[in-house]
Amino acid sequence: MSAVIQLEGLTKHYGSARGIVDLDLEVSEGEVFGFLGPNGAGKTTTIRLIMDLIRPSEGTARVFSLDARRDATLIQARTGYMPGELALYGGLTGIEMLKYAANLRGGVDWAFVEGLAERLDCDLSRPIGTLSTGNKHKVGLIHALMHRPELLILDEPTSGLDPIVQRELHRLLEEVRAEGRTVFLSSHILPEVESLCDRVGIIREGRLVTIQQVEALKESALSHLEFHFAAEVSADEFSSLPGVREVTAEGTVVRCTVSGSVDAVVKAAALHEVLDLVSHEPSLEQVFLAYYTGESGDAG
């Protein structure tokens, strides 16, 4: 498979600490790539470099084997982009805004646009300035998808969307993937990336920490289980099980931090009467922690 996005030593200095440092990254054709990191890590900077909105201090970005700077308009013709800080023309209606964008691109299949609006339940007849954040977001998504681009670059695409629309977006992205098109999306939410992406790059403080298959990421992720037993249970019963990183017992409540599969812990707990089981999604910081403490196996 050929590389759709190629970043080599991509570096952007801003005055102080922000920016990105020496980023190497390849996204293959047909891949859904997740770019994961906390706010301010450099996700948006990277995307704006790829879209030629800002220029690198060092290194290069290539898209479709074209130079991101020199061939920007050629790349844009084949790319759909949704910025993280979405700003649309508030005085235009959704239809006017999208017609304008379509005209700039030399025309699009308008029936397809209407189909997208229907699927996302988006009223295009109202002035954009009167829409809620979620509805503005939908217009932004349609704008990115309307010319059926080979590459979709979405900066935090689901923030502000209600769960129903999020699901519809996931379905749309599935279709994009099924058609062999490429998606590069950024997020600070681990489960979102896990459910959408094939491969994930984790960025922190401007540096790429690791690139992994989503499956591997899940395996190395920490989960927190909290068992409420009918009677007191000793922490010792869990502490030596595979994957267990930490156990505390307080009366009838046992809390475990487990890396990878929780199978052994759940089976051990099942020997007792379990009144309740609470499981927490690992936060992004905990995923990072798993890397920095180096106990998560094959990091990198």
């Binding site: 704006r48 879209m51 030629d52 909105l53 920007a72 308009t73 844009q76 013709a77 790319t79 982009y81 910025p83 800080e85 700003a87 649309l88 964008a101 700039l104 691109r105 030399g106 704008h143």
Partner: peptide
Amino acid sequence: SLLLTSTTP
């Protein structure tokens, strides 16, 4: 941001 990524140089 959107205007400058819509193929107009």
